[in-house]
Design a protein around this nucleic acid. Structure first.
Lengths: 174, 174
DNA sequence: TCGCATTTGAGACGCAATATCATTCGATGA
DNA sequence: TCATCGAATGATATTGCGTCTCAAATGCGA
């Protein structure tokens, strides 16, 4: 096969930092509690642990990997609860769900962080994050033209990275 | 749950026109045959039928729906072959795979057509296509900055459509 | 502290997509 | 035209993400 925008393996990597007590005092946690309260939902230990685990992530992560992280941290949370809570965290505006491929969905923290878009190398699967104010301005302008109220966006550029292009000569087509 | 970028039901619709003999004389078909030849792949009746069915589509479609179309047209093609051929058509630059949700993937024809980006209403699931030259220019500029060779892109804006905003007052939050 | 609606967890389930593999077939060269 | 062989097909099994079910547990307002 030749040039394509199909995604190849290898997307995220675990990225656990060692912030010891992110949860109860974290301002993002306050946002979540406020959201839960408004929606008449409950603040449970499971939800706190899941929020904490997501805040330890940098960049993209996937639900199954997050569940694995929680298990590794010694927390026993069911997969179903992870999925349910990620949905709430998204609704609370803390996470953004990202669709890169048809295997699974990914999430990234947006609360208090610069949100990114991605260059994806279709040859190596490597991701490059970037952020563009002009893109955001263009987004808002397009929304205004359509009377649309933007919540989030995804901008993915598929292509060939410089490294892949360099290595390309040897292995014929791909 | 409240505002979110999760996608709701209802995406594509069948769009079968009655072009009687699109396949063998279609220039897109020539592109496909050239691609297959270069890749030492074979031009089979199944592949011809699948290409033909995709060219009858306007806008987004999904593999299962395409398989259903083929069956409705009286063509017996296995699902596996549909999936395999769609991948080749993408590699040939005729189709583009689009990721809107974590349920399934979608495709759209790009050969000889203006490629679109989408506004997605998170409340109704409605899609609005748009096309922006400024976006394409911005994309190319970003790629140049990173030494990236672009193949395709996806730009999805999630938000609230004017109609949904109008209906919003009544149904509490969400 | 009580009561109840919400949440959780374990497992079953649905479904898109892929893998397997025996059989069939397209395309090349003679 | 025919033989040859690698590639393609189809039927089926399999995988894995995500959701659903429901009994038991629990947060939280009164």
């Amino acid at each position: 096969m030749a040039l394509s925008a199909r995604i190849l393996p290898s997307l995220p990597k675990p990225n656990v930092n060692t912030n010891p007590d992110a949860t109860p005092f974290d301002p993002v946690c306050a946002v979540f509690r406020r959201y839960l309260h408004n929606e008449k939902l409950k603040f449970t230990p499971e939800r706190a642990m899941i929020l904490d685990a997501t805040l330890r992530k940098e960049g993209l992560f996937d639900p199954e990997g997050l569940a694995a992280d929680l298990k590794a941290l010694g927390h026993r949370v069911s997969r179903a609860t992870v999925y349910r809570t990620l949905a709430h965290l998204q609704d609370a505006g803390i996470l953004k769900q990202v669709f890169f491929d048809n295997k699974q969905s990914y999430y990234e923290v947006i609360a208090g962080r610069a949100t990114n878009d991605y260059l994806i190398c279709v040859s190596t699967g490597k991701l490059i994050e970037f952020s563009s104010d002009r893109l955001k301005a263009l987004r808002d302008e397009i929304c205004k033209q359509h009377g649309f109220e933007p919540i989030s966006h995804q901008f993915h550029i598929f292509g060939i990275s410089p490294e892949a292009k360099a290595t390309q000569g040897k292995s014929k087509s791909r």
